[in-house]
Design a protein around this nucleic acid. Sequence first.
DNA 1: AACTCCAGTGAACAACGTTCAATTAGAACG
DNA 2: CGTTCTAATTGAACGTTGTTCACTGGAGTT
Lengths: 201, 201
Amino acid sequence: MARRADHSKEELASLVVNTAEELIAEEGIDAFSARSLSRAIGYTAGTLYHHFKDLDDIVTQVNTRTLVGLAQAFADATPSGDPRQMLHNYADAFLGYITLKRNLWNALFEFRRKPDQPVPPWYIEAIASLIRIIAQCFHDIRPDLDDKTARQSGQLVFASIHSVVSLDSSGRLSLVMDRDIGKVVHELVDMHILAYTHRAK
Amino acid sequence: MARRADHSKEELASLVVNTAEELIAEEGIDAFSARSLSRAIGYTAGTLYHHFKDLDDIVTQVNTRTLVGLAQAFADATPSGDPRQMLHNYADAFLGYITLKRNLWNALFEFRRKPDQPVPPWYIEAIASLIRIIAQCFHDIRPDLDDKTARQSGQLVFASIHSVVSLDSSGRLSLVMDRDIGKVVHELVDMHILAYTHRAK
DNA sequence: AACTCCAGTGAACAACGTTCAATTAGAACG
DNA sequence: CGTTCTAATTGAACGTTGTTCACTGGAGTT
């Protein structure tokens, strides 16, 4: 029952990643398996392994899309001339995107890759570029401080927001607090702005 | 090969949880399985299910111990009359404990319980009591602010620190920043103190 | 028409959590 | 001591999981 004509190599590859993305988005990473994916695309599990190294490979490609989407959400954030306001807008973009793609976001951080497997470099670069955008706001707030300080503040606020949003997204924020995630996020942003504004030269 | 005399019901139960704790601490939650655990205690996998509902049950008991240990680490934190200094001491206790029990801490947050299973109430209470301790420090800093404000700040600083420490503990902090976790933690504490100090009445 | 190639299959493997009939050691009793 | 009863333990089994691989049969080439 070989069906070589149904899809070209490239078509099948994108069919796999598209379908994987849909499955994870709808059912969550736990319901995702080699067999459920292959069933969904009408092929056998074995076929996946002729086009991808392993499941990790497929999930990584889905995760990359999720990160690219987040970058786009940042680019689409409501513009503002006030860097303080802009930080809040980025926070809203962040929160909105993750709320929309809850399961995909969880897949990014909950999926257990094999122990030794290193994190793909473009993961790091994708996140670094988001942090650069945030750091720019800090730089605009206090241009007298050096770039390193702005970058560190960008990292810190990104990590803080990422963390509470991820806790919320995985349903564990209620373990720690009984407040609305939106309020918490903006309070965090205000706090980082306050701290940055008060920094010594 | 039934060995009823080897261990009483209670002995076997604590043998299971003790061994599970050791296994998870040494090998991590990924290497933990019903068969590896039963092999380690010299019984069969089936035996586990006569004494525990399922693996979730066992891991939950290990996790409870981890939380109790964290509470103890807080109690053992270096005392200080200065609430600001005390917050830093708690942060050190937190960081030190989790560094020591890396794998157990990851098990607490990475272990995937069955979808619907609710979080055990004593998890929540254990965390709440830690937050109360932190909130007390905030209250001491500015006794003029009400309890709710102090509690919310306690929740926020706990969530912030928990998050970066967990990121570090699971090896993902480097995705976001290139700094030492110790420095970051204390910078976060300082920031929360600064923000709290500047709050309007 | 014959030949080569390779995408796709489906069976197989090891490991997973979990269940359960069967076994059998130890306790209780006459 | 012998018998009976109870329940702790086993080991096979089921349905999953990720992954591998010998085989097949249709598509492209000669």
